[in-house]
């Protein structure tokens, strides 16, 4: 009835996977690469998530943080329950229209650079709740980087979403957050830019 059983390897059998080194010039005793890549690597591997969990997807997120899936392997060990110190806003669950300004305020309070992961059908599009009181997708109020479908998604899918965010963080130019295009994007969401 169940799928193929994968042997869960013991501690001694495991291979430790280390982050690949960025492209650059290498020689005896030195390694030179661009600042963009080093900072991107550092950012991608220490994303501090802020879980904005309002319903059942939040339970699935707890499973993701638990020892079976262990999101800490991706450098997201430390959950930040204050938006000021968070890099990644994970919105999990139904956001009602009354909750929308609060979500926007949370996004506003986060320091740049910041990313948003929308987890589950409700946060992404409203899901089955096509009613007067539910926000039809959080991208009506804040920009979203990665969407994770499912009701609720499996922890595997949430991890996949986080890996995608890491990819974004790794390849982002340092000037992007100062660009006019980015400011215009924020203004289109009526978010003040400093």
């Amino acid at each position: 009835m169940f799928g193929k059983k994968v042997p869960l390897s013991g501690r001694n059998k495991q291979m430790v996977k280390i982050v690949d080194q960025p492209e650059g010039y290498e020689g005896q005793g030195f390694f030179a690469t661009s600042l963009d890549k080093v900072i991107g690597m550092a950012r991608a591997n220490s994303l501090w998530p802020l879980p904005f969990a309002t319903s059942c997807c939040g339970i699935e997120f707890m499973a993701t943080m638990g020892s079976n899936y262990d999101l800490a392997r991706f450098g997201s060990e430390r959950l930040s329950f204050t938006p000021r110190q968070a890099d990644l806003l994970m919105v999990m669950g139904t956001i009602s229209k009354k909750m929308a300004p609060i979500l926007k305020q949370v996004y506003d309070q986060m320091a740049e650079p910041k990313w948003v992961l929308s987890v589950g059908a409700c946060a992404c599009s409203g899901g089955i709740f096509d009613t007067y009181s539910v926000l039809q997708g959080i991208d009506r109020v804040i920009p979203v980087d990665v969407y994770v479908p499912g009701c609720p998604p499996r922890p595997e899918q949430i991890i996949e979403g986080v890996i995608k965010i890491q990819e974004l963080a790794k390849n982002e130019s340092l000037r992007r957050r100062n660009s006019d295009e980015y400011k215009r994007m924020l203004e289109s969401y009526n978010i003040e830019t400093k």
Partner: peptide, 14 residues
């Protein structure tokens, strides 16, 4: 033994 399943490399039975 560690309980962690290294997801992208290993998968859990489903």
């Amino acid at each position: 033994p560690a309980a962690t399943v290294k997801y992208p490399e290993q998968t859990r039975p489903m």
